[in-house]
Design a protein around this nucleic acid. Structure first.
Lengths: 228, 228
DNA sequence: GCAAAAGTGTTTAGACTACACCCATGC
DNA sequence: GCATGGGTGTAGTCTAAACACTTTTGC
């Protein structure tokens, strides 16, 4: 673009720009993605990620926030860019490029609700995904890779948990995402040792078993830490 | 975009889509980036990354390859997407989004040459960069971070070296990029131990010192390995 | 024989892994 | 008193870091 002609016609042939969001939550011990079902048009009835076109007067990050808020009712959470997806055949309706974002929410607190154009919205288990429209399967895979990776060197897991939680709950989140069991003693030693979480002093009683201590994250901003 | 109206006007208001490339080389023991100087227009005389508009009939990856080839004469090298940059004020000439790529070349083999629209092209030391047009300083920073990171868990350094090289040369590349000295014995032990490189059996004599064994990369395709 | 770069091992400290039993509570 | 999940320590192995001298060559 640097060296194209300087005077730009109001309208130039360029791919349209959209964003799609991969929103994760851990629910019932399983990693889930928020999917919507398209209500009309070429892809009617198919599952896809929530997304939308980027407007001329908003940055990519802002567009992602707006679309997430409008189409999935999620506000004020951590959003991170996953990358741009721009293969020629990604959308049969016309040439476009999608900037994918990924986000984490606490599955207990957030209740998805369907909106206009979407005939359905639901959490789907990543290990049993339906067929997805566009190149969204690829985007989801990229998102899962990023999430797994990031879990090992950052504190992002805070996005998936309530303010207070037990170490067992935290471990379940890690195990669900990594899809493998972790040693309880080593996990607790490490997590507490690096100061990822701190004790709240509170205790939660639940059912016929020893009550658990409640912890909270030392930081609720994205931060690099050697976790695993 | 999924839930916009189905029939798309031939021309819709959307940001233009471009790509820019951050091309690295290690020359004279310093990490360098390939920059061009803009020949005309709003940003005339300023330094920037080589880039260009994405066409309607090519994917992002393909556009990046084409532009790299056309504007910097670099062909057939490893290209990796860095991410999308789409702030509102990134280009004073109009709204656009740039998909940035990063690439590595062997500074000894590749000689940059100026082309149409560019008044100059040159390797610039990353520690002494001129002021850059657009948001290219941010893109370069992202590129350097990615490169440093990747050096630690992949074999990408092969892109920066000729087919055969000495272990000292390899170490210089690592040190230039990480901007810190490495222990010679530990470096060699690790690099050879993990099988990143293999001996060619050849020896290179050069000046008044002990001749050095020549090595080559075990793999010349991107691969994950725990290097540092 | 000396300057210049190549090459080579050992020791130590910290991190990761594997592993099994007692504790506090509700019913 | 028993079922349920919470909580704890140690020994062995591996990896990373620190560190200094000998070798081969050209001149």
């Amino acid at each position: 673009m640097k060296n194209t002609k300087e005077l730009i016609p109001a309208c130039i042939e360029t791919p349209r720009v959209a964003t799609d969001a991969v929103i994760f939550a851990v629910i019932d011990g399983a990693l889930k993605v928020l999917l919507i079902r398209i209500g009309r048009g070429t892809y009617e009835g198919q599952w896809a990620l929530p997304g939308g076109l980027v407007r001329m007067d908003e940055s990519l990050d802002r567009a992602a926030e707006r679309i997430l808020s409008e189409k999935a009712g999620v506000d004020g959470i951590y959003l991170e860019q996953l990358g741009a997806f721009g293969d020629l055949d990604r959308d049969r309706r016309g040439r476009n490029v999608s900037i994918a974002y990924f986000a984490l929410v606490n599955g207990e607190e957030y209740l998805p609700h369907t909106i206009e154009y979407y005939s359905d919205i639901a959490w789907k288990d990543v290990s049993r995904l339906p067929e997805l429209a566009f190149d969204h399967a690829k985007i989801v895979t990229t998102g899962i890779d990023r999430l797994r990776n990031k879990l090992g060197y950052s504190n992002i897991a805070y996005g998936l948990l309530p303010k207070e939680f037990t170490l067992t709950e935290l471990q379940t989140v890690y195990e669900s995402i990594l899809d493998r069991p972790l040693d309880k003693r080593n996990f607790r030693k490490k997590i507490v040792g690096i100061g990822l979480v701190k004790e709240t002093g509170k205790i939660r009683k639940s059912g016929p078993s020893r009550p658990a201590r409640l912890y909270s994250f030392a930081d609720r901003k994205p931060k690099m830490v050697d976790v695993l």
